[in-house]
Protein backbone atom coordinates (compact mmCIF):
# COMPACT_ATOMS: atom_id res chain seq x y z
CA UNK A 1 0.00 0.00 0.00
CA UNK A 2 1.61 3.21 -1.12
CA UNK A 3 1.51 6.31 1.08
CA UNK A 4 -0.77 8.07 -1.38
CA UNK A 5 -3.27 5.24 -1.20
CA UNK A 6 -3.11 5.42 2.54
CA UNK A 7 -3.78 9.15 2.47
CA UNK A 8 -6.76 8.79 0.15
CA UNK A 9 -8.12 5.92 2.18
CA UNK A 10 -7.77 8.07 5.29
CA UNK A 11 -9.75 10.84 3.70
CA UNK A 12 -12.41 8.42 2.42
CA UNK A 13 -12.97 6.94 5.84
CA UNK A 14 -13.10 10.39 7.41
CA UNK A 15 -15.67 11.37 4.81
CA UNK A 16 -17.75 8.31 5.53
CA UNK A 17 -17.62 9.04 9.26
CA UNK A 18 -18.78 12.58 8.62
CA UNK A 19 -21.61 11.38 6.39
CA UNK A 20 -22.73 8.83 8.92
CA UNK A 21 -22.76 11.43 11.65
CA UNK A 22 -24.70 13.91 9.55
CA UNK A 23 -27.28 11.28 8.64
CA UNK A 24 -27.63 9.70 12.02
CA UNK A 25 -27.97 12.62 14.39
CA UNK A 26 -31.01 14.76 14.74
CA UNK A 27 -29.29 17.72 16.36
CA UNK A 28 -28.63 20.34 13.74
CA UNK A 29 -25.31 21.35 15.30
CA UNK A 30 -24.07 17.82 14.95
CA UNK A 31 -25.28 17.65 11.37
CA UNK A 32 -23.27 20.78 10.75
CA UNK A 33 -20.27 19.15 12.38
CA UNK A 34 -20.60 16.15 10.11
CA UNK A 35 -20.60 18.42 7.09
CA UNK A 36 -17.48 20.12 8.42
CA UNK A 37 -15.81 16.76 8.69
CA UNK A 38 -16.67 15.95 5.09
CA UNK A 39 -15.17 19.26 4.01
CA UNK A 40 -12.01 18.46 5.92
CA UNK A 41 -11.81 15.09 4.25
CA UNK A 42 -11.98 16.77 0.87
CA UNK A 43 -9.20 19.12 1.92
CA UNK A 44 -7.06 16.15 2.87
CA UNK A 45 -7.28 14.95 -0.73
CA UNK A 46 -6.03 18.27 -2.07
CA UNK A 47 -2.99 18.17 0.12
CA UNK A 48 -2.32 14.49 -0.54
CA UNK A 49 -2.38 14.83 -4.31
CA UNK A 50 -0.34 18.02 -4.13
CA UNK A 51 2.20 16.20 -1.96
CA UNK A 52 2.59 13.28 -4.36
CA UNK A 53 2.10 14.96 -7.70
CA UNK A 54 5.08 14.40 -10.04
CA UNK A 55 5.99 18.06 -10.31
CA UNK A 56 4.26 19.94 -7.53
CA UNK A 57 3.52 23.40 -8.78
CA UNK A 58 4.52 25.93 -6.15
CA UNK A 59 1.48 26.10 -4.01
CA UNK A 60 -1.69 25.12 -5.85
CA UNK A 61 -2.92 22.52 -3.40
CA UNK A 62 -2.26 24.74 -0.43
CA UNK A 63 -4.07 27.61 -2.04
CA UNK A 64 -7.07 25.40 -2.72
CA UNK A 65 -7.12 24.35 0.88
CA UNK A 66 -6.88 27.91 2.11
CA UNK A 67 -9.82 28.95 -0.02
CA UNK A 68 -11.78 25.90 1.07
CA UNK A 69 -11.11 26.72 4.71
CA UNK A 70 -12.27 30.28 4.15
CA UNK A 71 -15.47 29.08 2.50
CA UNK A 72 -16.00 26.57 5.31
CA UNK A 73 -15.63 29.32 7.86
CA UNK A 74 -18.28 31.35 6.07
CA UNK A 75 -20.52 28.32 5.86
CA UNK A 76 -20.17 27.60 9.57
CA UNK A 77 -20.94 31.17 10.48
CA UNK A 78 -24.15 31.19 8.46
CA UNK A 79 -25.01 27.66 9.54
CA UNK A 80 -24.71 28.45 13.21
CA UNK A 81 -26.72 31.61 12.75
CA UNK A 82 -29.40 29.51 11.11
CA UNK A 83 -29.30 27.09 14.02
CA UNK A 84 -29.83 29.92 16.46
CA UNK A 85 -32.62 31.27 14.31
CA UNK A 86 -34.30 27.84 14.20
CA UNK A 87 -33.90 27.57 17.95
CA UNK A 88 -35.59 30.89 18.42
CA UNK A 89 -38.54 29.77 16.32
CA UNK A 90 -39.17 26.26 17.58
CA UNK A 91 -37.39 26.22 20.95
CA UNK A 92 -35.27 23.24 19.96
CA UNK A 93 -32.82 22.40 17.23
CA UNK A 94 -34.16 19.09 16.00
CA UNK A 95 -33.62 19.12 12.31
CA UNK A 96 -36.53 16.83 11.44
CA UNK A 97 -38.96 19.29 12.94
CA UNK A 98 -37.72 22.16 10.78
CA UNK A 99 -39.91 21.22 7.83
CA UNK A 100 -41.86 24.35 7.31
CA UNK A 101 -40.39 24.97 3.86
CA UNK A 102 -41.71 21.72 2.41
CA UNK A 103 -43.40 21.74 -0.95
Amino acid sequence: MSPLQLCVAFSSVLFAVGLTGALARSNSILVLLGIELMLNAANLNFIAFWRYSPAPSPATGVIFVIFAIAVAAAETAVGLALVISIYRHQRNIRLQEATRLKG
Binding site: L32, L80, V83, R91, R94
Partner: peptide, 15 residues
Protein backbone atom coordinates in the same frame (compact mmCIF):
# COMPACT_ATOMS: atom_id res chain seq x y z
CA UNK B 1 -18.44 29.44 17.58
CA UNK B 2 -19.75 25.90 17.94
CA UNK B 3 -19.32 26.00 21.69
CA UNK B 4 -21.26 29.20 21.85
CA UNK B 5 -24.00 27.78 19.70
CA UNK B 6 -24.18 24.71 21.92
CA UNK B 7 -24.39 26.78 25.05
CA UNK B 8 -26.97 29.12 23.56
CA UNK B 9 -29.25 26.26 22.56
CA UNK B 10 -28.81 24.31 25.77
CA UNK B 11 -32.45 23.84 26.58
CA UNK B 12 -32.91 21.44 23.71
CA UNK B 13 -30.91 18.69 25.40
CA UNK B 14 -33.96 16.82 26.52
CA UNK B 15 -34.78 16.10 22.89
Amino acid sequence: ALLFAVLLTRRSRED
